[in-house]
Structure formats: C-alpha cells, structure tokens
Design a protein around this nucleic acid. Structure first.
Lengths: 157, 157
DNA sequence: TTAAAAATCACCCTAAAGTATGAGCGTCAA
DNA sequence: TTGACGCTCATACTTTAGGGTGATTTTTAA
C-alpha cells in the first residue's frame, strides 16, 4: 500500500521533470531561432546545457533519493508472562531436572512445601529433597534466593 | 552483493527517468526530422551532453550524498527492572509504610530475617514484627507469597 | 499539644523450611 | 547388564519463619 503511493510521489517528480525538460528544450530552440547564435557561441550553448542538466540530475537524485534518515524506534511493551521464554541452555547447564523445575515454579508462586507436595502427589520429604538439590544447583541457601536467581536466569517466569 | 540489486530497486525511479528522457529526446528528434527545422548534428550533440551531464549530476548527488539511509527498526523489550515504577496508589491503599517496604524489598532479594535485621541495624524481632504486618496487609501467609503478590502489584521490582 | 501511626524490641511457642544421610525403584544408554 | 540418573520416601535433627501478646519510643498529623 505504502509502496504504491510512494512510487506515485516519486513518479510525479519524473513527470514534472519531463515537463520542465520539454519547456526548457523549447526555450532553447526559441533562443536559437531568435538570435541565430548557434554557430558562433556553440561552446556557450553546450556549456549551458551541461550545467543545467547537471543541476537537474543532482536535483532529481536528491529529490528521488530516499529520506535521509528514518529511525523507527519500535518500543514493544510486553509483560514478562507473555514474553517469557525458558532459557533451556541455562537449565541444562545447571542440570536441573523437569521435576525440580516444576517444584521451583510452584515455589515461586508462593506455595509451601506441603502445598507443593499435595499438588504433585508426593510426600513432603520428596519436596524437601528436590529443594535441597535445587538449592545446591542454583548455589543458594533459601527458597527466596532460589526464586530470585531462577528468575534472573530466565528459568522461571 | 545485495548492494547492486538493492541499488537498482531503490533507484527504480532514476532508471525510469533515464528511459523517459531518452524517449522524450527521440520524440523531439523525430519531430525535428519530420519538420526539418534544424540541423541534425547539433541536436544529437546537445542531447548527448544533456544525457551525459544529467547522469553525471545524478551520480554526483548519489555519490556525495550523506551515507546511505539508515533505517533502524529497534524493538525494545523493556525489562521490568528498567521499567519499574512503584505503584504508589497501591502502596497507600494497602497502607504499607516505608520501613515495611524496605523490609519487603530485602525479603524479595532472598535475604533471611536475620540478614535483613543486620542490614537495617535493628533486631530480628523487629523484622518479624514488620513481616507480620506486611503479611497481614498483603493478605498472605508466607514471605514467598508476599514477594509474589508485591511484584504483581508493582510494589517491588 | 495530643492522639494516631510508625518503629522498635522482647518472650514464648508452633510451624515450616532446610540439612544430612540412607535407601528403594524405574529408565535408559553404554 | 550395569551404572548413572531421576524420582521417590524416610528419619532425625537444626535453623528459620511466623503467630500472639505486650510494651516503649519516635514521628507525624490533626
């Protein structure tokens, strides 16, 4: 859509130029006929043409050249929850298992160990074991630190 | 590599202009020949000069013009940490004091109550009292929930 | 100035979290 | 098949977190 109008506006210049050129040529022709200087001042004539057309070329080029600088800064505000992509590299680097990640996510939602255990149909002790391994792998001492670190590393949203 | 085709597509108008010019000149020539107005040699010469210098002008303009148009499309995914603005309305609505907010922030950084106490030069019991009030105001039961809720409400980054 | 809110701290108790160690079971690749 | 790994669970213990209550001292606002 923008291409079409763009092209038109550019072509308009071409058309204008063409008209201008025609007028100019006819003017020159008229001058020729009027003063009959063709044979005597040929160099002047040719020089004029050269200068005029050079200027025309420059004008045309500048006119048709693309706008100087278009800096489109597209700011995309998207919430983390929408944007979140799990950093699998980090995950495998830290060697965190699926189950551990699951526990970590529930932990970050504010669930207690008991609640996590109930949700995952396992015992409280199992969750504690997962936690211990998680803290070891994330090199932290508390669940709050684990959450903080995991979020920073894009392991959880 | 891509420059050549790029140049062509970008300067389609210029090429079109050249063709238009040629057609125009030939048209004029044809008119001349048809009506036998002038000597042919000069016309061809002048036309050549016009074409050459127009091309020169275009070339000059394009060559000397400022560096190619820079079109930057910058997608800025603004991170929470950069964007964070404290929701003061929520804060006053919940009636959370400055000190409590301070404790909440340190809490969210993964610090233990003891560490927070040391950092703020107060006793552990004081922190516990702050916590209790915080949990009450945020209507949560655990620090992890407090952090989760506070982040959701934009009370902490 | 005076009441209300904020900040401080203590004590006691319970609940939850975290540590350490050991072990059973299933899967999957070498 | 064997050994590494993941998941599970247990017991025992320590530490931290949280609840309840009461109290003192600043700060702040009416």
């Amino acid at each position: 859509m923008a291409n079409a109008s763009n092209f038109l506006s550019k072509n308009k210049s071409v058309v204008l130029y063409g008209i201008f050129l025609a007028i100019l040529l006819f003017l020159l022709k008229w001058l020729e006929l009027r003063f009959m200087i063709m044979d005597h001042a040929f160099e002047i004539y040719a020089g004029s043409i050269a200068i005029i057309f050079t200027a025309l070329g420059i004008w045309l080029a500048l006119k048709l050249a693309r706008p100087k600088t278009i800096l489109i800064e597209k700011k995309v505000f998207i919430e983390q929850s929408e944007t979140f992509v799990l950093d699998e590299k980090e995950l495998s680097k830290l060697n965190i298992s699926k189950r551990e990640l699951e526990v970590l996510q529930l932990m970050s939602e504010g669930l207690s160990n008991q609640e996590i255990a109930l949700k995952l149909f396992v015992s409280l002790n199992t969750i504690k074991t997962h936690n211990a391994r998680l803290f070891e792998k994330l090199e932290v001492k508390r669940r709050t630190q684990a959450i903080e670190t995991a979020k920073r590393l894009s392991i959880i949203p």
